[in-house]
Design a protein around this nucleic acid. Sequence first.
DNA 1: ATAGGTTTTGTCAAGCTTTTGTACAT
DNA 2: ATGTACAAAAGCTTGACAAAACCTAT
Lengths: 294, 294, 294
Amino acid sequence: MSRSVSIRSMGEGGRLRIGELSRRVGESPDLLRAWETRYGLVAPDRTRGGHRLYSEQDELRVRAMRRHIDAGLSAAEAARLAKRDGGERQDGSASLAHLEAELSRSLDALDEAAAQAALDDLLAAFGLLPALAEVILPYLRGLGERWVAAQISVADEHFASNIIGGRLRRLAQGWGEGVGPRAVLACPPSEHHELGLLSFGLALRQRGWRITYLGADTPIDDIAAGLTELAPSIVVLAAVDPFRFLDSAHSLAALAARVRVGFGGAGASVALAKQLGAEPLTGDLIDEATALRP
Amino acid sequence: MSRSVSIRSMGEGGRLRIGELSRRVGESPDLLRAWETRYGLVAPDRTRGGHRLYSEQDELRVRAMRRHIDAGLSAAEAARLAKRDGGERQDGSASLAHLEAELSRSLDALDEAAAQAALDDLLAAFGLLPALAEVILPYLRGLGERWVAAQISVADEHFASNIIGGRLRRLAQGWGEGVGPRAVLACPPSEHHELGLLSFGLALRQRGWRITYLGADTPIDDIAAGLTELAPSIVVLAAVDPFRFLDSAHSLAALAARVRVGFGGAGASVALAKQLGAEPLTGDLIDEATALRP
Amino acid sequence: MSRSVSIRSMGEGGRLRIGELSRRVGESPDLLRAWETRYGLVAPDRTRGGHRLYSEQDELRVRAMRRHIDAGLSAAEAARLAKRDGGERQDGSASLAHLEAELSRSLDALDEAAAQAALDDLLAAFGLLPALAEVILPYLRGLGERWVAAQISVADEHFASNIIGGRLRRLAQGWGEGVGPRAVLACPPSEHHELGLLSFGLALRQRGWRITYLGADTPIDDIAAGLTELAPSIVVLAAVDPFRFLDSAHSLAALAARVRVGFGGAGASVALAKQLGAEPLTGDLIDEATALRP
DNA sequence: ATAGGTTTTGTCAAGCTTTTGTACAT
DNA sequence: ATGTACAAAAGCTTGACAAAACCTAT
């Protein structure tokens, strides 16, 4: 509503001229004008002389446009999405932050009902993969760190793990069935952290894989036994401690000679995987699952 | 790459051009077009200029097609299956809408085996309370309405009621035992609709209550007789017609003077409950059960 | 009964060409065609171009034909029998012995779909508590014994445990909510067998208790920390090895001084419980849960 | 089992159009 | 700033082709 046409004020009014906007968002002025005329991406006010004055929301829209294009959308589609919800970014992340806080609070308070409700909301609002990637896995990481720092008791950690683990297993229902390629999932001996592995399995399932889940603390040689029966496309092993891999180095190398093997979890590394003839799956868990090809 | 971004930006309405879809699913654009023209696998929107715009479901279909082909089916068969159920099974649980339709269809067709299977799936996929709240109770409401509108015969209505009632009773197995507070459930004289009351009992049981179920058409004075023996925390009466309460007004008032009494069902109202000294339970059945405190 | 095919019907209706059928049943295409023309063993659909499309039932018939031939029958005789009853599934008699055998078979064969179906049938036919008491817990005992006797690999054991554990956790949905007395369930440090504890929790839940589940490998002192917050009626600890109790003897005695504590599992004994001030829950797991009073 | 013809299906090419970033004249 | 132009990239349609998989009949 500010009437004053303070040409110079690009500060608190937040209204930018095209050159400054171009510099901030890293798009050429020509392109910004093209996006405006072609797709109506923005409709900046004008100075009396006709110069464009962009608002902060315009800037958000332009950035959203760029994100969508980088994600592979056409310019037209990108503009359509950016116009629809380009300025609402902080709203969405606010609700995400809120749900994250609620999950955290309820689990810390040993309040199962509230925790289940938070998980419900989370999954309903974002869907499985984003909920895992953006909230649940970060929460579990934080939980581990607080546990290491002795800020929470093991009982607290167990409670939260069991609630989340229970939910993940519920979502895993029937994940061994169907027609996709098969992945066998397990943790090496002495490794008991399986929530990450469960999440990885769910992400794979989302992509159509069939999962055979052996879970925590599984002797490597025993995996080999079921190989002919299951004929998996890949065996994925996850551990948070590299020594869990190294302790079974010999068996792992033998396994990798017979079947494709992937190493994941904080204990995996490219070097370690290479050394034992396995594939490294050391990136973001969800990304790795999404990118995995049979 | 910006893989996680893509997950997010695909969330709502971001339609892909053929090149990007090709990149994501790993099939050549030529092949995608061939599958479309030969088998009608997908029917993407088009830009004004004729370029294809694929939806998220299209992507799922293409992936399903690939899975079926890898499983050994011919392209034609793979496409037939992918079209049939390519977009349905995201997270392993069949969609609620699909199960609802299947229940409805099988009951209308008087196909008991199919109806039982649909109930199995429903309960397995969503659990008791959500299944009741989201599917079974809405179905029963619809059934009642269709019966009033004379769109179905009494036999149809009985068939469906008996299947569902039978299942609810089986689920009620042992609900009188345990350690929780006790609720006595009954319908007043001349009231014969007890499916809602059964559901209410199951929801209470789910929350730890012990149920004593007297069922349809129960004289109020008879309830009073068992009172000292059972020592219930509450007596819940349900009727679809307010006159069923009014006909026993005197006995009901007397009962409410001795024990906590709740009124539920379409025949209950806040005014009526107040008048006879009872608690109204007029909200959503499952919600009321969940909120009830001993 | 053919179990709810609808959910896992991914392969349902997928008709095979002769090459793929040949691969699956291990008979040459030529032979398959010969059996068809000579004995009318099957009558597959055809594509417009004339290619054969075999149904799942056709596959069963071919397999039956092979079984009969291997049993010594002539081809003509074998075809006659296979046509008569080759396509019919072995009908699942709902007998307990049969279901037990089917569960055992499918888990040993790492066949998740069949195992889930067996669990479905089991729970539908007998209900939770009988299914646990009569089939699932005995099976788990047998599994442990076979494992000790090294008759099965750890991977086999893990697979079965995860399938059953997943199901139990699914059934545990929402068991922390409601109005009943609260029980805290955990295994002492180093104890990782939690399937019995889960079953015990389900049995308690069935009787109206609210469950707070801390699961495997929980330090006793940490349980004490949550005590005021949760105010449980009882804390139940389970272990298969008495040393798991003895290792935490001091903490356990301290805990038992503050709250009612029960000891269960093969590692518990009346003497041990008495010594540490706890209640023995050494009888049948389901019976103990059923008999427990707040 | 072989021979000879047919169907299915992935791929490619040719020629034309649309989309989109950038450039330039007014 | 506007409007037009332009060219690279990406798409579209039609038609064809060849390898693999199937068919029938001998």
